[in-house]
Design a protein around this nucleic acid. Structure first.
Length: 110
DNA sequence: CGTATGACTAGCT
DNA sequence: CAGCTAGCCATAC
């Protein structure tokens, strides 16, 4: 299944835009991004866009985690392992396999 | 246009 | 707290 959702004006492009805005050392949940793009229930669709995204340099998809802080997916490196390592490297702390959302959850307003 | 899929989420057990 | 189910969404065929 080849996906080419990176089209202007598409839902996916908005997701990429916002994902790229996530500050270093912070993480955002799929549901949060979905809400920012205007579809609070499109968390799933957001995840698909991340998977489609092959450029983690412009879209830090590793800063996108599940609503409970659990790491999911990631198609680069060793997958979840690489994703967790990337977050740790940015200063994000974990509780077991979950991110401390209470401290590192990205605040678009802040 | 209808069906199938997936890096989700909230609710219940 | 961990595991399972049903609901929701955008994209692909």
């Amino acid at each position: 299944m080849e996906y080419s959702t990176a089209r202007s004006g598409s839902f996916s492009e908005r997701v990429y835009q916002i994902a790229a805005h996530i500050p270093r050392g912070k993480v955002a949940t799929y549901g949060q991004l979905a809400r920012l793009v205007g579809s609070p229930r499109a968390a799933r669709a957001v995840g698909m866009c991340m998977k489609n995204n092959l450029d983690r340099k412009v879209v830090p998809c590793h800063r996108v985690v599940a609503s409970d802080g659990k790491l999911t997916g990631y198609t680069f490196g060793n997958g979840i392992k690489t994703k967790r390592a990337a977050l740790l490297k940015e200063g994000v702390l974990f509780i077991g396999d979950r991110v401390k959302l209470g401290i590192f959850m990205w605040a678009p307003n802040a």
